[in-house]
Amino acid sequence: MSEQIQDIHLRNRMQRKQWQDFLVDRGIEVFADQEIDVIDDTIGLFDENGQLVGTGSIAGDVIKYIAVCNQGAEAGSRFNTVVSELVSRLAQQGVFHIMVFTKPQYTTSFEHVGFTKLADSDQGVLLEKGDPNIQKYLAAIPKKDPDEKIAGIVMNANPFTLGHRYLVETAAKENDWVYVFVVNQDASLFKTEERVALVQAGTKDLENVIVVNGGSYMVSYATFPAYFISSPDAVVDYQTTLDARLFKYWIAEDLHIQTRYLGSEPYSHTTDLYNQALQRELPPEVAVKIIPRKELGSGDAISATSVRQALSDGDINKIENRVPITTYQFIVSHQEELEARIQKGNENGD
């Protein structure tokens, strides 16, 4: 075995070209910035002639752009070498939970190296490996009696507004228990822990509401890697379908959630597509209930976007009537820091 693993530096033009050509030859043709920019590490497997015969990349806890040439090697051995190296590198960084998004035909290859399938669509499949896995995530969430009426809401809450509050309140009135999952994504203006804390503070008086961090399983679907899908229309369909099925077959199934509540989406086209995917995928096991957005009067729907806009305009008075007092107090006491974050331009999401 004289095949060697080496780092590939994508900033180096020659290495990037060699890497990209290798992937294109293997049917991976998408090299969009949002896919490439998040990559932390890329490795190459080179044969005795210095020829690239395999590659894989790490982006956070996700591995992607995995491709091998099986010519002149035992089937699967190069694939295993590449995945093995990626897994070991992540372990050295203390990351023991790994996810992969790939084409459905590679499901078995990944299952052979210890991955478990979580959800799939026609276009792509999501698998995970390691610890803590989805069973451990679910085991840590308090369970309720399946005979009771249980609802679920997933929100980014960036930040928690009176619109979110209205949605939670409505679900809390109509159900015995409501799980509120806060999307785990630190690209948002408000950090995940801040958003979770604000949702908790803003729903404290509702005794049947359980606020849960979405963990690895309720992230922004838009961050699902889609480097293996060439058509942009298919990408949104794949991302939303995968997200919906993950929720249905794992989260709702385990926590006995019978109804998922959504806010109507008058502004964002992609969120609207997402809502459509949920309506298509979740029933009949999980009903979907769309609650019209709460308005301020004069047709001005409350959105987290408008709160962030007001914050970035320095127009903090505009915020007060859009958010619960708990969120308002947080914003006032962290105004400088939040403005600094906006300056840094890391605003994202809703």
Partner: peptide
């Protein structure tokens, strides 16, 4: 603390303890 040893290559075994 979770720990990992071994590889996924032929004739090896990967062990993860948590």
């Amino acid at each position: 603390k979770t720990a990992l040893a071994g590889t996924l290559e032929s004739s090896d075994v990967q062990v993860m303890l948590s």
